[in-house]
Design a protein around this nucleic acid. Structure first.
Length: 857
RNA sequence: GCCGGGGUGGCGGAAUGGCAGACGCACCUGACUCAAAAUCAGGCGAUCGCAAGGUCGUGCGGGUUCGAAUCCCGCCCCCGGUACCA
């Protein structure tokens, strides 16, 4: 650019690339973000953002998650809180292993280089993380405590081993759900067909806490999340009822088949019984004549349950096994089937089928021509008339029918009476069942926390003694290009001596689910370098629960449920008294690629933030991400509009640096709006600033960052109108600029600190960071306006607006309204039936009768 | 299917019973400039009208209300989660 006579050129331009690194370095020197956890002179505020997975797909989504949280941290600091805003990395998991298998190398190397890059990026965005408290879960100093906690849970009876099926590839070993592809269920790497394999695996007893997890006492979580967790736990009250197996030619009978039902009142309507294909008694009870068919069905079901999960409403399938059960309440013999709509993992894996009152049983009975007997009927309904669909809904007048001695009872009464009767002989007991399963924590993989137990031929399962923790992952790993767990063939890792008998023993090679890592990491942030204990009790008591947790809604059930479970379990082994981890929760939305899909390298839709930062500066990117839309919404990424935000920061810069400048392109520039006195102009500026402060504070508190930015833009627009006029640079102007910078500081921290320091130095005052200033107080008197505009409606349609004194009384307002020429014209002589002063005179609505005006006049 | 979220200008969005479209993008016009860019100012839902102004308009259909994007009933579509839970 060449030198011209234009006065604007001499004014220094906003150059984010030059100023941002300077301020980041300065904050680092000052230790602005290090939290003194021992400082109790200020109220504490624990702000937690879900720690990221160091995937290598570093994208704008990470900024979208962190930027508003960082603004919130800064905002809270300005309110005098001792804010703890830590960060860490969820560093174990599959992608690191996949990269290692593909490219050779070690998952650790891959992970740490990604982490290094993410640290750098988080620093370029100006995030005020407490880096001294950083936690990396793949570090032995972290995962040793996973192991310690596991052993404590084992001791407390909260961890156990049981057999469970996994998806198994003959070449690559155990596969995760997302590694099984296609309807034929093949391995994603080698294409081999995946089979089910039963393995002994470790579980945590999450179900022991099911009822407590259903209570959300003292925590302020969004309703949708609570609903999702409640549904996930899926508590059902009912009863377990024993049916005896009837004697047949091929088996003597007498076995007990226990079913779970929520509707014991419908027991007389049970016309057949269905077992899950995997039910343990199927083999013994099956009539040899049915064996081939049954075996074929079982084989088919093993594939089918996984293949057609999508088709809930597909035709019911099943086969009879050629045996019968005896209904305990009336001695009736009913046929036994196996069908894949009964799940082995829920209830007892067996049901009594009541087709008249259950949709699925109805469909099955219809397909197989089985009897359908109504046992619940509304008053006046014919008890023997055929049903064309299952009758599920309860009506108040419903009564039991076709139910022997229980006829005429209500469903609830029948329920209680039938269970009570059968309970006398031990054939029934009330039972609560949960959909929630115990947490399967075994993973047959290398890159995770080794489960610290030893298998000894003599002593069985032996916990690794505490003093031998951590059980470290071997530093060399040989994947041999396959997904099989390399620990299984690592002799140095495998071969150990039993801590009990000193005999040869074998180390457990399963590692822990990475959800274990994320189930307690925020406690560890409080004492990340403590080698003596997983958590620091007094610190935990002082700092937890977390005041505000932010993260994606996709974690509604898994992570957020496991964290609650862990907190309760940790409390029960005496580590803390608090039983809930997060007091408040906010779920931000997710930024998708421009194509509306999740951002990932393989899709090629990743937006790299570095590019944008180099072009516009971090402050612009931060502000744009907040301005895009409501934070809980997310959406496809589009950089359209980022220029507008950049323009706004340029305008702020100009306002501060060059209050007296004028616009050559605007003939009005430099003069007050037509007819406006200086006094009015000063009041306008002051009022605008304080009203903005009032509104912006509320927006920050409610996480409405998009409207927060919009209101700051409005204020800047107002100020711009007065730039170069006689009131620019005056005390009201100065105050407005001060407020504008303070309000903007949490969101755009670099440019505001730069401008703040320039103002201080211009005023000869000593430098102090804007980020150590207090949030300003609203002058309520300044927000008041002398006049206001009142919209006037006639029959709900806007016809005019009148300007009146703010404190106008209702009678005067009505008189002014009715005298308005436009209102008179619109009324056309009709007499108002009613005049409604809505919202204390905020709006006036005149109601007139439609039709002819003459009859009223 | 069930659960949760949503549907507003060309686009992102604002307004949660009271002025629909704040703020911004894109676009148009003007100023500045030799010119362009940048910058500044103004305009910008649709439709009828020279204008003043009118009419219509928040997925669709009904309802409640003086007044509905907002509340209620029925339906359609999109996104996320889940998968026959007895």
């Amino acid at each position: 650019m060449t030198e011209t006579t234009d006065s604007r050129i001499r004014v220094e331009r906003y150059d984010p690339i030059a100023i941002e690194p300077r301020w980041q370095a300065r904050w680092g020197e000052l230790g602005l973000h290090d939290t003194d956890l021992d400082d109790t002179s200020k109220p504490k505020y624990y702000l937690l953002t879900m720690y990221p997975y160091p995937s290598g797909d570093l994208h704008i989504g990470h900024w979208y998650i962190v930027t508003p949280s960082d603004a919130l941290a800064r905002y809270r600091r300005m309110h005098g809180y001792n804010v703890f805003f830590p960060i860490g990395f969820d560093a174990f998991g599959l992608p690191a292993e996949n990269a290692a298998i593909r490219n050779g190398g070690h998952p650790f190397t891959w992970t740490m280089s990604n982490i290094e890059n993410m640290r750098r990026q988080f620093k370029t965005m100006g995030a005020t993380f407490a880096w001294k408290n950083e936690v990396v879960t793949a570090d032995p100093s972290y995962y040793r405590w996973n192991q310690w906690l596991f052993l404590q849970f084992l001791k407390a009876g909260l961890a156990y081993r049981a057999t469970s099926a996994v998806d198994w590839c003959p070449n690559d070993g155990t596969l995760a759900r997302e590694q099984v592809e296609g309807t034929d269920r093949h391995c994603w790497r080698c294409g081999a067909l995946v089979e089910k394999r039963d393995l002994a695996q470790w579980f945590l007893k999450t179900t022991a806490y099911a009822d407590e997890l259903l209570r959300f006492d003292g925590i302020d979580w969004p309703e949708p999340i609570r609903i999702q967790q409640t549904n996930w736990i899926g508590r059902s009250e009912g009863a377990e009822i024993d049916f005896a197996v009837a004697a047949d030619d091929h088996q003597p009978g007498g076995d007990t088949l226990r079913v779970f039902t929520t509707r014991p009142d419908t027991l007389f309507g049970a016309t057949f019984m269905v077992l899950a294909p995997e039910h343990p008694l199927v083999e013994r009870l099956t009539d040899p004549a049915h064996l081939a068919e049954v075996a074929a069905y079982i084989a088919q079901a093993r594939r089918r349950t996984e293949i057609d999960r999508l088709s809930t409403d597909r035709e019911k399938t099943g086969v009879a096994i050629g045996a019968s059960a005896i209904n305990p309440v009336n001695g009736e013999r009913i046929p036994i089937f196996i069908a894949d709509y009964v799940l082995s993992g829920y209830g007892t894996g067996a049901i009594m089928a009541v087709p008249a009152h259950d949709e699925r049983d109805f469909a099955f009975a219809t397909t197989f021509g089985l009897p359908i007997r109504r046992v619940i009927a509304a008053e006046g309904v014919d008890a023997v008339a055929p049903l064309d669909m299952a009758y599920i809904a309860h009506a108040a007048g419903d009564r039991l029918v076709n139910s022997g001695p229980f006829d005429g009872l209500s469903a609830a009464e029948g329920n209680a009476a039938i269970v009570a009767l059968l309970a006398e002989t031990g054939a029934a007991e009330p039972k609560v069942t949960y959909r929630l399963h115990d947490w399967l924590i075994s993973r047959q993989r290398y890159w995770g926390t080794p489960i610290p137990v030893i298998h000894c031929p003599t002593d069985g399962i032996v916990p690794v003694p505490d003093e031998q923790l951590p059980v470290r992952l071997p530093e060399t790993v040989d994947y041999r290009g396959s997904g099989e767990n390399p620990l299984d063939r690592d002799a140095a890792f495998l071969d150990v001596t039993c801590p009990v008998c000193d005999g040869p023993a074998r180390r457990e090679t399963d590692t822990l689910d990475t959800f274990i890592d994320s189930s307690w990491y925020w406690f560890r942030y409080l004492s990340p370098h403590d080698d003596d204990a997983p958590v620091d009790g007094p610190m935990v008591a002082r700092w937890t629960p977390v005041d505000q947790y932010t993260g994606g809604a996709e974690h509604a059930v898994m992570h957020l449920m496991y964290s609650r479970f862990f907190t309760k379990a940790m409390a029960d082994i005496g580590l803390m008294t608090e039983r809930e981890p997060f007091k408040r929760l906010f779920n931000q939305g997710q930024i998708l690629g421009a194509d509306g899909e999740r951002m990932s390298k393989s899709r090629g839709n990743v937006q790299d933030p570095d590019e944008l930062v180099q072009r516009y500066g971090a402050d612009t990117v931060r502000l744009f991400l907040m301005f895009m839309g409501p934070w809980d919404q997310g959406g496809p990424w589009s950089p359209t509009g980022i220029g507008g935000v950049h323009r706004f920061l340029n305008r702020v810069w100009t306002l501060v640096i060059d209050a007296h400048g004028r616009e050559p392109g605007d003939p009005e520039s430099g003069s007050l709006p037509a007819g406006e006195s200086e006094t009015v102009a000063r009041a306008t500026i002051r009022g605008a600033a304080h009203r903005t402060l009032r509104d912006v504070s509320l927006d920050y508190d409610a996480f409405r960052f998009n409207t927060m930015v919009a209101k700051l833009m409005e204020l800047a627009n107002t100020l711009f109108r007065y730039r170069g006029t006689s009131v620019a640079g005056g005390p009201e102007w100065d105050e407005a600029i001060r407020l504008l910078l303070l309000m903007l500081a949490p969101a755009a921290p670099h440019v505001t600190d730069e401008l703040w320091s320039r103002r201080l130095s211009a005023a000869g005052a000593p430098w102090a960071s804007i980020h150590t200033q207090s949030w300003p107080a609203v002058d309520v008197a300044a927000t008041a306006e002398a006049t206001r505009e009142v919209p006037v409606q006639i029959n709900g349609k806007l016809r005019d607006k009148v300007t009146v004194a703010t404190d106008v009384d209702a009678a005067t307002l009505e008189a002014v309204v009715l005298a308005s020429p436009k209102v008179v014209a619109a009324l056309a002589g009709r007499t108002p039936l009613r005049v409604i002063h809505a919202g204390g005179g905020k709006l006036v609505n005149i109601v007139v009768r439609d039709g002819s005006s003459l009859e009223i006049a």
